[in-house]
Design a protein around this nucleic acid. Structure first.
Lengths: 149, 149
DNA sequence: TATTGTTATACTCTATAACTATA
DNA sequence: TATAGTTATAGAGTATAACAATA
């Protein structure tokens, strides 16, 4: 077996290369880290999300959520409040500024992603989508033993 | 658009989760880092590879190759010599110990990978393979502007 | 006592530059 | 002057534990 043909290796290399293309857009151009981008991404649609839901809807643990949110709040892109019904939690919202930034960035990120995906045939894109969805389920199945903190 | 349905996000999450499964095998059990594993993987087949070829056949830059090789040599898993025809280069070889370790690890890594892939239908696996190959070409195409050091 | 968020710490990884040896 | 490997340094990312607040 060749390393280059070893499936997990190919997957990791392609995913990392793809990721870099996008980080270059929202990171180099707008100074956002990957975790911050993910939070903004979720908040831009939902408007308000509590801390538990944020953890569930990303692969971020509570430490990462806490830190990314702190940075975003500092930048004035999101708001953070403590709900009265359970004061251990936090409820995050997006500011007008945050929403505006997201509206500006998203098309650029999508454009960069499209640039790559469009250079594939429609058939290959469909295959990738189908395969990836199946892989997601397969990996999730194998993951049940581990916790996430 | 939902973050969870955003293709690059799904790709990154699945690839990372898959990677972790394998690192757990060669890392937690045998104390190898990802770069070390890649070098061993290549050397186990080729027996001898020079430093330039190692860089070309992985995504590792010269710093990563140099450090991973230094650690592997320290562990007695590979050898390092300086060829007389160009003394700027290095030629790496694998020791009997390194080969034995690889022979022991590879089936376990493959087993773990299979465990995940086998839980997918043959059709989904084929789709994933096809899609990933196409994505690799697409990402490589977009990458020509950047250098790798 | 358990859960949640925050802070602290150490460890790994990555990127970059400086340095040495060789061509 | 250019190329290659090594070493050094800083920055980003990740993992873990300790801590404080709340349930």
């Amino acid at each position: 077996m060749q390393l280059e043909s070893f499936f997990p290796y190919r997957l990791a290399v392609a995913a990392e290369a793809f990721s870099r293309q996008l980080i270059e857009v929202y990171g180099r151009t707008y100074g956002l880290k990957r975790e911050e981008w993910r939070l903004i991404f979720l908040l831009a649609r939902a408007q308000r999300i509590d801390s538990l839901e944020l953890g569930r809807r990303t692969t971020l643990d509570k430490v990462q959520v806490s830190r990314a949110a702190a940075r975003l709040e500092e930048k004035g892109l999101i708001t953070k409040t403590t709900p009265d019904n359970d004061r251990r939690l936090r409820v995050y919202g997006i500011t007008a500024e945050g929403q505006a930034l997201f509206n500006e960035i998203l098309p650029q990120v999508e454009a960069r992603a499209s640039e790559i995906l469009k250079s594939m045939s429609a058939e290959d894109r469909a295959a990738l989508d189908q395969g990836l969805e199946a892989l997601k389920r397969a990996v999730e199945g194998r993951r049940r033993s581990r916790g996430k903190g």
